[in-house]
Design a protein around this nucleic acid. Structure first.
Lengths: 210, 210
DNA sequence: GTCTATAGGGTGATAGAC
DNA sequence: GTCTATCACCCTATAGAC
């Protein structure tokens, strides 16, 4: 029972351990030994399941990039009006990020080293970032034309939304210190931001002269 | 002339090379050999000037944290009205970051590994992040009381400002791909954002019923 | 101050017993 | 499938000649 029930569960176990170590330390600082210990497993077994550190990393990175981008597509391509789309985007992004605190920094860090990986992986997720922008632009420009919102460049607005959702978690150590929060209070603050950020954005694009 | 004029210039040369390599690759992935080559110098010389990789790193990291935080203090403690303070903050942050593209990701990445370093270094810069927040809160709360702006939590507003300025550079590879920009156009876009972001923020906090 | 050579420790990967 | 032992390489750091 101790040594048998595992089999193909082990692979999953190892992947989770690797995910944790890679995302927290980055590729270069991650040690095969860290991953092995995290999974309560022998170092040699890692190579038995996934030939090399590189192979393991690629597997995880690809999956994480998908997580990072997918979901947005569904929201943007729904038939909701812009205001609700924005609310949904903010809620989706912040929720995802609170559940995966190390994800954004990890993805962005590794992406600097080899930016070309982005396109491949994102496309493999069935929803390219470009498509999302194109659709979002249509929504924004329609809203501008119908005077539902103020004039704003769709690309800038999209950047603003992402920034407001993602950056705070990346800067967690700074913010914890500056705002004098412990981990629990920090998470509460992030949840609180779902409403705050939506309001902040919607107030900004609301037509000035009603 | 080739081997002599250096002397104490070499130290500076090496620090610049180290800064470049460390900020681009992070501590773990940075190689002493990379730094040596970047500085056109022998590997052993690095240890002659700065005993170890760690010592070198600390020196650079401390300086970069200072860059990251200083300047904000002067702006916040000036006598300008909130609107101008915000404009100045945005301009200062984006300008600093465009000039040091790898700085934010580097600082934030290394900060995750050892968050406690933040307080020491930030305080050593003579302007603790906490002080900045305290002062900023006074400005915001005064403006709220005098109906100059809408009600908003000062901490949230500060986070928003930082997010909108810093995140885009961290996500540069993603944005270049999504917005289909080359390096030159990306820098132009960031410069363009100085005005865009200021407007975005000020519109959001502007009193609704004038 | 600057170089070459090398020590010393760590890390990814493999061989081979069970 | 799982383990121990070990190889081969890489990287930091130092010793010592010049």
């Amino acid at each position: 029972m101790a040594k048998e029930k595992r089999d193909n569960q082990t692979e999953k176990l190892v992947l989770e351990a690797a995910m944790k170590v890679f995302t927290q330390k980055g590729y270069a600082a991650a040690r095969m030994d860290d991953i092995a210990k995290e999974a309560n497993i022998n170092r040699a077994l890692l190579h038995y399941y996934f030939r090399s550190k590189d192979k393991m990393f690629d597997l995880i990175f690809e999956q994480k990039v998908k997580e990072f981008f997918s979901g947005l597509g569904q929201i943007v391509f729904s038939d909701r009006k812009l205001e609700d789309v924005i609310r949904e985007m903010v809620k989706h992004e912040i929720t995802l990020i609170v559940a995966n605190p190390y994800l954004p920094l990890f993805v962005l860090q590794e992406l600097q080293q080899s930016p070309e990986r982005l396109l491949n992986h994102a496309k493999a997720s069935g929803m390219s970032p470009n498509l999302i922008l194109k659709r979002f632009s249509v929504l924004v420009n329609d809203a501008i034309r119908s005077k539902t919102i103020n004039k704003i460049e769709p690309g800038q607005l999209l950047i603003n939304i992402m920034s407001l959702c993602i950056y705070p978690m990346i800067a967690k150590p700074v913010l914890k210190s500056v705002l004098e929060l412990d981990d629990k209070k920090f998470d509460n603050m992030m949840a609180h931001r779902i409403g705050q950020v939506s309001e902040f954005i919607l107030l900004s694009i609301k037509p000035t002269s009603k």
